[in-house]
Design a protein around this nucleic acid. Sequence first.
RNA 1: GGAUCUUUGGCUGAGUUGGUCGAAAGCACCGGUCUUGAAAACCGGCGAGGGUAACACCUCCCUGGGUUCGAAUCCCAGAGGGUCCA
Length: 413
Amino acid sequence: MIDLKLLQKDFETVSKRLTRKGVSTELLEGLKVKNEELKKAKAAYETLQALQNSMSKEFGVYKREGKEISELKAKVDANKIEIAKALEVQRKKQEELEKIAMSIPNMPDDNVPDGEDEEDNVEIKKVLTPREFSFEPKEHWELATQNGWIDFERGVKLATSRFSVGFGMGARLERALINFMLDFNRKRGFAEVSVPALVNAQALEGTGQLPKFEDDLYKTQDGLYLIPTAEVPVTNLYQDEILKESELPIKMTAYTSCFRKEAGAAGRDTRGIIRQHQFHKVELVSITKPQDSDKVFDEMVACASDLLTALELPHRLVTLCTGDLGFSAAKTIDLEVWLPGQNTYREISSVSNTRDFQARRAKIRYKNGKKNEFVNTLNGSSLAVGRTMVAIMENFQNEDGTIDIPEALKQYL
RNA sequence: GGAUCUUUGGCUGAGUUGGUCGAAAGCACCGGUCUUGAAAACCGGCGAGGGUAACACCUCCCUGGGUUCGAAUCCCAGAGGGUCCA
């Protein structure tokens, strides 16, 4: 949620930073005007309300003393009508304001590079060198089918396209990866939590998926939603709470299934398990004091990167440009794993610092001395399990189509 | 699914003949006195959001409606929790 006070106080800065995200100055100016109008409407309403309160008190005194009340009653009745009108005006303004405010993305950090789309993301570094193949490496769906690890047709039969079924080692590898990742993260200081896969609308508003991205969410008949990422339930664990300074930072890791309609991805990654409606993910979420979030961000990136390194998977780190940055993020570093079958790097993890954007929406604060301040929230995948399997298949394949298992995983199988 | 009770500030918990209740008390917490230090004791502070230079003032006692000049307190609906029945 945009900081309306800051917008009011320092329009220049806010506008400049949001322009980089493609938010028009006109929209922000409109928002500023709306905010001022709302303040006026509120003041008008409150003045009337104060009058009503004091007259009502007087009313009590009159009755107790047995005084004549008809004149006072007439005044108070008239005022009541004014209050109703003023309240309606205020309510309308509030609604208009919120509609705009909730749809404005987070301000990117100043050091986030400008850019249109993923083409303009900036590589930070490569980790591990991709191996040389003496044969033409296959893509993962071919390997998965050949080894009987994944059945694509039966997934479609059970549900619809973009669903698949793991068999044998395909299923076991998935479970091994989840355990390996959770253990790895725990050793890095992230406490394991187990959370619901269904959440209410409030939680999704808190982390920014609603109201803007409803199209990509599965909704149940009684108004709950399947989570698109564990970020939603884990971050919202502390929704509407005031944390003690000594509790921070809170660093958590959680494994969940994730569900996405992939509404805007028609035709993309239709083969294989790169883009599924249901996938497994181990997530990292941190809640920190504002001054600590950069440090924790680096820890999270390192955690995900080291995990890939432990699995002997070549990857690279890229900073997302403004055009590719998500709605809630102030800064994001993607980890892209090398896929020899596709001969390219593909996203496998995304670590974001949302600063106080989600905290403001979800009302997560901490006591800073006497004052209550918004925390910073961060999230990052560590890792997308399906994509990790893809990476293992493609990087550890042999000429005959068999697949080796990374050393680090063997104790989990 | 039916019946009944219940929902108050970080926690426990008063407050049901509507007005002086944003809300007693205890615990926890913070500051101070005392102490070599700590504990105990004593003194003080202590919900949140908006608003203000600071006050004033407004809002919030599960949520949403309603009655009333006025509601934590009354009515209706919903959600959560307990007990009994199925």
